[in-house]
Design a protein around this nucleic acid. Structure first.
Length: 621
DNA sequence: GTTAGGG
DNA sequence: CCCTAAC
């Protein structure tokens, strides 16, 4: 509001201007003239200069000003808030954007404040920026521009309306009533209408009553409603065939829609239900901004449409989703859409391609790191977009994965196939723990799995695995958390046609040591014992694993010992090069326990095996 | 449920 | 690692 002083035009003016400015059509109306200081009506021209308002403009405004005198506080947004509190139905987006977290929760409470913020913001944006360009990187900036373009109308706000809560909660209200344009006939000049008439018009337009007495607000509101635009500069409408035709000022409409992909109204219509079907459209045309300017009035207050608009618009902004963002979204999304999504996209072939195509953002997100993305944007933009993104599972599928699939045979049929394909890929890449190539496969599988199971540990897997690979000894640190590996598996197609699950959790040095110790203590063959006592913390190592590993160790130790000289080189591709000492010990233990090939055990085991023998025996006996 | 051994 | 027979 202070901004008014500094500039000749006021916030309102700016607000209204924006669209106008672009088209350089006659400017709107500054409305704060209450201030004794002389306010001059001006129009901000394209280049930012102030141009004296034309007579028409002045006239246009004067009427508005009269109303304002009585109540000048409310600015553009104020009306909305009033409307909102009075069951207006549509949430003032601005509030959400400018307000801090809590605001969206209590629009009414914060309405005033947010208005102030908004106004200021809008004004500033107007003056400082070329609202023309929506800069993705600048959240605030883009918001402002949008506001400028779209206006403050609830309808228009949709694209910006991020928070699901408000959006959804409101959608219920919005959809409940429907505008009846049939009541509006002929030409309507809002400027000439009385409050009561305005009320009627309002009702006809929005299908609900309003208690707002503010003529200006009503006009603006109705104008916005009729034009489905925020350009309220036009107050005269012609109703034709139950459709609203703005009289003159076509440009303003265009101006609103300078976004590249404006013509999406069709897609939007289809999406009215708020169902994820919209995904297809989005995928095909991510730039889709959908029609803010729907010519079909019936849609104008359908908030579900707005939500979609929001999502799509947000989608348009190429904001890289953050990792967390994606994960959270996929979580939400999977909860909400998984069923529909799968079925709706199933045969389209999108199902397969989209998850992959989405991979990129996901990865980018990782680099981004900062989960700072505004909630609004993320929620709005992702709602429909992200379904395919889905959290990428960084670890192997759950063990019960297949079981789950069985539980949902209908929707999972395709899913299973997808997984198979994905797995096929990953199967070809044995060492895919970190590989990029496998990423697709993984994400795909993750995509399908995600909806099925809630996934608590997700993130840890990757890191831990990596850690264990890079630093085996560090593994010990993970003892406690090692349980997280439990579901880390990969299923690979089997010749028989069945799915074989293949875990690959490389044995770490510490594990090997434990195993050896266990064998020494309890004796080879008592795997379950060893597992219980020595591997209590390694839940993922089964007794069979121990046995297998021991077998391998034996093999390794005996294979190597004869040629101890070439030890280093010979162990070419042992994933976990086992230190000679350990192998030695293995051999000793083996010999001790009479598992040894006679020839090898013969000479060399007397040396230091004594102690071991004793230990072993003790433990064993 | 374990173990041993093959794949 | 998985699978399975044998215990």
């Amino acid at each position: 509001m202070e901004t008014v002083v500094g500039v000749e035009g006021n916030d309102e003016a700016k607000f209204d201007d924006v669209p106008v400015v672009k088209t350089s059509s006659p400017l709107s109306s500054p409305r704060e003239i209450a201030d004794p200081v002389v306010y001059k009506l001006v129009r901000v021209d394209r280049d930012g200069r102030l141009v004296p308002a034309t007579d028409d403009e002045v006239m246009e405004v004067e009427d508005l000003l009269e109303d304002d005198k009585s109540e000048r506080l409310p600015v553009a947004g104020a009306g909305q808030n009033v409307g909102y509190t009075s069951n207006d139905g549509c949430p003032p987006i601005k509030t959400q954007f400018n307000g801090s977290e809590g605001q969206s929760e209590n629009p009414e409470v914060n309405a005033e404040r947010s208005n102030a913020q908004l106004d200021t913001g809008v004004g500033m944006g107007k003056l400082d920026d070329e609202h023309e360009e929506t800069i993705p990187s600048l959240e605030t900036n883009s918001n402002e521009s949008h506001i400028d373009q779209l206006g403050s109308g609830g309808e228009c706000s949709s694209p910006l309306d991020g928070p699901i809560k408000s959006g959804s909660s409101i959608s219920a209200i919005c959809t409940s009533s429907k505008p009846d344009f049939s009541k509006l006939k002929g030409e309507i000049c809002l400027d000439n209408l009385s409050v009561r008439e305005l009320h009627e018009t309002f009702k006809a337009t929005f299908g609900r009553e309003t208690s707002v007495k503010d003529k200006q607000w009503l006009r603006r509101r109705i104008a916005m409603g009729l034009a489905n635009s925020c350009d309220v500069s036009t107050t005269t409408f012609v109703i034709k065939d139950n459709k609203v035709v703005t009289k003159g000022k076509e440009e303003s409409f265009k101006s609103v829609d300078h976004t590249p992909a404006k013509v999406l109204s069709v897609g939007v219509n289809e999406n009215c239900g708020g169902s994820p079907i919209g995904c297809n459209n989005q995928i095909e045309n991510p730039q889709n901004v959908c029609g803010k300017i729907l010519t079909d009035p019936s849609l104008e207050y359908d908030c579900s449409v707005e939500d979609l608009n929001t999502e799509q618009r947000a989608a348009k902004r190429v904001r890289k989703p953050t990792k967390r963002y994606i994960e959270e979204l996929s979580e939400v999304e999977s909860r909400d859409y998984s069923g529909k999504l799968i079925s709706s996209v199933k045969s389209s072939g999108q199902g397969l391609s989209s998850p992959i195509s989405r991979v990129r953002p996901v990865r980018d997100a990782q680099s981004d790191g900062r989960p700072v993305v505004t909630r609004q944007d993320s929620l709005g933009g992702s709602g429909v977009q992200v379904p395919y993104v889905c959290r990428v599972r960084r670890s192997r599928p759950r063990e019960n994965f297949m079981a789950l699939m069985k539980l949902q045979p209908s929707s999972m049929g395709m899913a299973a196939n997808l997984v198979k394909k994905a797995l096929g890929v990953s199967g070809a890449q044995p060492d895919n723990e970190v590989g990029n190539k496998v990423f697709k496969a993984r994400s795909a599988s993750g995509w399908i799995q995600k909806p099925l199971v809630a996934e608590p540990e997700k993130d840890k897997h990757y890191q831990e695995i990596k850690a264990s690979e890079l630093d085996k000894d560090v593994e010990l640190k993970h003892l406690d958390s090692s349980g997280d590996y439990s579901d880390d598996l990969v299923t690979v197609p089997t010749a028989k046609g069945g799915m074989r699950r293949k875990h690959h959790r490389p044995w770490t040095l510490s594990e090997v040591v434990k195993l050896v110790e266990g064998v020494a203590r309890y004796g080879a063959g008592r795997w379950s014992e060893i597992k219980r006592l020595s591997f209590a913390s390694y839940s993922y190592r089964t007794s069979v694993d121990l046995k297998d590993k021991w077998r391998n160790l034996l093999r390794a130790s005996f294979a190597q010992s004869p040629a101890e000289k070439g030890m280093q080189g010979s162990r070419k591709h042992a994933s976990v090069p086992i230190p000679a000492p350990i192998l030695l010990r293995v051999r000793e233990l083996a010999e001790m326990q009479a598992q040894v090939p006679p020839n090898l055990s013969s000479s060399k085991f007397a040396v230091c095996s004594d102690r071991n023998v004793h230990e072993t025996r003790l433990g064993y006996l």
